[in-house]
Amino acid sequence: MSSLTVLEPGPLATIQDRGRAGQAALGVPASGACDRASYSLANRLVGNPDGAAAIEVTYGGLVVHADTDLVVAITGAPCAGVPLNAPTTLHAGQVLRLGAPASGLRTYVAVRGGIDVPAVLGSRSTDLLSGLGPAPLVANQTLPVGSSVEPMPGVDLAPVAHPAEGNVVLRVTPGPRRDWFTDAGWASLVAQTYHVSSNSNRVGVRLDGEPLERARTGELASEGMARGAIQIPPSGTPVIFLADHPVTGGYPVIAYVASPDLDACAQVRPGQPVRLLSS
């Protein structure tokens, strides 16, 4: 059977697929790849069926050993030292070493056949919040590669833009609790330049900036929240929910990030400037 062995996981590497949508009523988060376009592209480039499990690498650093001949594709944040956005053959014994990315945060490594770890509740995704799915990758771990494949796509290189360096603009629309904030609070949300906090993770992107003015005090009864929700905790600064967000939250959601911008949102790095644009 085909396999690869993790020599070094880097800061954080997890297995991800399309996640566990459809089970939120049981308290099960959706999870899945954070940058879904890059994840899907990686699978397409190696002829995997949609939904095959791949590796999500956070800020490079992953080193893997091909135990057998493998076809891989690497997409998302462009890590130094590896071919990008193109199917590549790794011969048995070869080592793939992802350097730090020049821009962006998350890189996807798809292997033809898919990473074949057991599925939990219909998905192979690691959910860091709920603990469902496989644990994050560790050194010396061998990952089995499956055999379910489609024909190779017949492209040498996918022409995609790398994640943005510098200022990132995310379009937003008012959320269900916009009225918990004053007009000045809303204006501040869509006018100021935030900076991505180092406390960000797969659950959410935290933004540092000026706190927003609330129109009312009191506690919100917990309510369902979807990916892209911008929740404002008592600190007054936003948390944008990503893949591993809890199914409900207890702080008011002032706005939502437009879904076409969620992949870009999954690529912002600590310290990077972010603007939220009212659309």
Binding site: A21, A25, E223, G224, A226, T248
Partner: peptide
């Protein structure tokens, strides 16, 4: 509301999340 909605879910519904005062439908 949740019981009625999930007994006959509209097309394309992905998740129905009841909470204390609300139901989120994706």
């Amino acid at each position: 509301y949740y019981t009625a909605l999930t007994a006959d879910p509209p097309a394309d519904v992905v998740d129905v999340v009841p909470a204390a005062r609300t139901v989120l439908v994706t």
